[in-house]
Structure formats: structure tokens, C-alpha cells
Amino acid sequence: MAHELLKRIRVAVLGVVLAGAAQAATAAESIVLASTTSTEQSGLFAHILPIFEKTSGISVKVVALGTGQALDVGRRGDADALLVHDRAAEDKFVAEGYGSYRRDVMYNDFVVVGPTADPAAVRASSDTSDAFRRIAGKAATFISRADKSGTHAAELRFWKAAAIEPVGQSWYKEAGTGMGPTLNMAAGVDAYTLSDRGTWANFKNRQNLAILYAGDPKLFNPYGAILVNPDRHPHVKKAAAERFIDWLTSDAGREAIASYRIGGEQLFFPSPR
């Protein structure tokens, strides 16, 4: 009978699903790390996590979100540890008792990216505020992440420092998306945007885009690791998560971070001790 056959197919498929689930359940210890799109899309995790997994036997499952969203996931207890980059929000997270502690891990920097033709002459900027003022002065299209990410928070700080209120201006587009999609948009319409150096270095669809301004100490972009508070969320895998955070800040972890390069360029620098 045809429906006998269908039944048999159903049973087979169900078997495969259950086998997959069982496999997931019996796998070695794992933790969930809520982190940022910049660390995932720059390729850093693909480089350092296999090294950590080999030495510890703990597999790290990375959920890549904007920093704001990652903190939210941590607040709900859906991750064991966080690796994010918005210092003010991180300190608030720990102060409110959602995180046990925060540790400096690494840093890189933000870069102002735009069309090589550079209609706003951002290349000639004297500092970050000047660069942002030049973009606003020429009403050149600027694409904002607008997703409460660490990069978005930094961008809003830079506008504030330049004494400009961009929200609502016709040249200011709020994309509400990750770093990669924002760069895709900027490449598509020859717009300016702010990127972290890691995502930019690993980004392949550049078209006419180039780094137009970088190097100001204000563009410093530090990443911190946070243990989600086990007192608030008892299911947090404290021992494994702490082992990961300890490793990130150990000599071995620092070396792994420093050794990630794209085209010879180092993308993340271990924080000074």
C-alpha cells in the first residue's frame, strides 16, 4: 500500500530526527556564548574556538547578535557567558546583578568607511568628530546600524561628540541590521558608515568602499567577557564558562587572539594586563 510506504518513510525520518537529538544530548560539555556579529563575521571565533576546544574539551556554541541583543539574551539566562563591546552597557549589566563580573579581553578599532570618491572629503579629517561633521555638512548618505549594537552605541557617541543630531535627517538611513548587511547596503548605494575593523577586513563585497578615516584613539573598541550570574540563573554552566573566560585572558588565549590575521593584518589585540 502506498500509505504503508509513506508510513515507513515517516518512521525513518522520525528516527533520523531523534537520533540527531540524542547525539546532541550526549555530546561533550558545551556552553552558549552570546556574542557580537563583529566577532563572528570577522572569522575570529572560527580561528580561536577550535584551539580552546582542543585543550579543554568544552565546545563553545556562539550565538552572534548585536551587543544590545546579546546582553538581553544574557539577562534572560539564555547564555552562559557573553563577549561584547559596549562598556557602559556591560558595566550596567554587571551592576544590575545579571552578570557576575566583567573582564577585559581584547580590543580593535572602528573605521569610517565610505566611497573611494569621498564626496565629503573625510580622508582629510583631523579627528573623529571632524569626520562625522564633514559627512553631515555635505549631507552625504550615512547608513547607521540602528540595532543597539556596540558599534551603533559608539556611532551615536561620535555624533554626540560632533554636536550633530542625525536621526530624522534625510541623508541618515537607519538600517536596523548587522554589520555585514550594513556594509552591503553602503556598498550598494556608495554611502558612508562606521564599521569595526574585523568585520571590514573579512568583508568581501566592498565594491567602491574603502577605509577613509581611522587611527583616532577615540575609535578604540574594547571587548569584554561577562559570566552570566549563576545566582540569578542557576542553570548557567559556571565552571565551563569560567574556564572559557579564564582561557581568553590567559597567555594561551591571548596568543590565539593575536595570531588571527587576514592578509597579514592582525585584527584583534589582547587587552593590556
Partner: peptide
């Protein structure tokens, strides 16, 4: 699923990720 590498990454989320990286 969270698009976790080797855990919950499926075809569509992998496509979204590669698009994000600009690897069209």
C-alpha cells in the same frame, strides 16, 4: 536556533551569514 556553527546552522541561516560577510 541561533545559527550556531556545527550545532544549529542550516542552509538558510548559512546563506544569511555568508551574505552578511559580503561573500555573495
Amino acid at each position: 536556533g541561533g545559527n550556531i556553527d556545527r550545532a544549529t546552522r542550516v542552509m538558510t541561516t548559512a546563506i544569511a551569514l555568508e551574505t552578511s560577510k559580503g561573500d555573495l
